[in-house]
């Protein structure tokens, strides 16, 4: 089953506004796969270039509209690929980001890339859908705890992410860096 999730408000229809050949989101396999989100005014469709903070906030507000229109929510995000224009703004992103994922943050990978139209932030999101299967579970998403808590770098440095999230039949992992692998091999198992 593959359902197209239409843009919840006209401005967020990037296919109509900018000719991007993509659906806003697709629901399949109990998950909602969103197109990469950038800071767009949801009413007018205007690009809202700003700071990393202002763009991240606008994206999360738009994601809230999109996910809630599909019967999901920000709380149900399981994985995020956060793209920023420059790694030097990593802590700025984290500061804005953590306000929107206060409980059980998604698995996350951050990378610096070229983003369309000179934006500073783009978020690529997968969320758990509202399904009968999900309703039967206590919660549609579940953080996977490492076997040895002291092997979890994300917790140690207080980053707003979970090492892994289970949603239905899938497990989503954070990006793994060399430091984590080294740590894992030293401590045998994460």
């Amino acid at each position: 089953m593959r359902d197209v999730i239409p843009a919840p408000v006209p401005g967020l229809d990037l296919r109509r506004e900018y000719g991007h050949h993509q659906s806003s989101a697709i629901r399949a396999g109990g998950l909602i796969f969103c197109s990469g989100m950038v800071a767009i005014n949801p009413e007018s469709g205007e690009r809202e270039h700003g700071t990393v903070t202002s763009e991240a906030r606008r994206i999360f507000e738009n994601l809230k509209l999109l996910l809630e229109s599909a019967g999901s929510s920000l709380d149900r995000i399981v994985q995020v690929h956060a793209m920023i224009y420059d790694r030097i703004e990593y802590d700025v992103l984290n500061r804005a980001y953590r306000q929107y994922v206060p409980n059980g943050p998604p698995a996350r990978t951050v990378m610096s890339v070229q983003i369309e139209a000179g934006f500073k932030v783009m978020l690529d999101v997968i969320a758990a859908a509202e399904t009968r299967q999900a309703a039967d579970m206590t919660h549609p998403k579940q953080a996977i705890e490492p076997r040895k808590p002291d092997g979890d770098v994300s917790r140690r440095s207080d980053l707003p992410l979970s090492p892994a999230i289970r949603a239905g039949d899938f497990v989503f992992f954070r990006g793994w860096r060399r430091s984590i692998r080294r740590l894992a091999s030293r401590r045998t198992a994460l």
Binding site: R15, S23, I26, S35, H81, M83, V113, I115, M122
Partner: peptide
């Protein structure tokens, strides 16, 4: 890209790398 997905295109993320 457009030619390969004539109806209901997938969700998509594009970036330069």
């Amino acid at each position: 890209y457009r030619e390969f997905f004539p109806i209901d295109p997938p969700a998509r993320t594009v970036c330069g790398a």
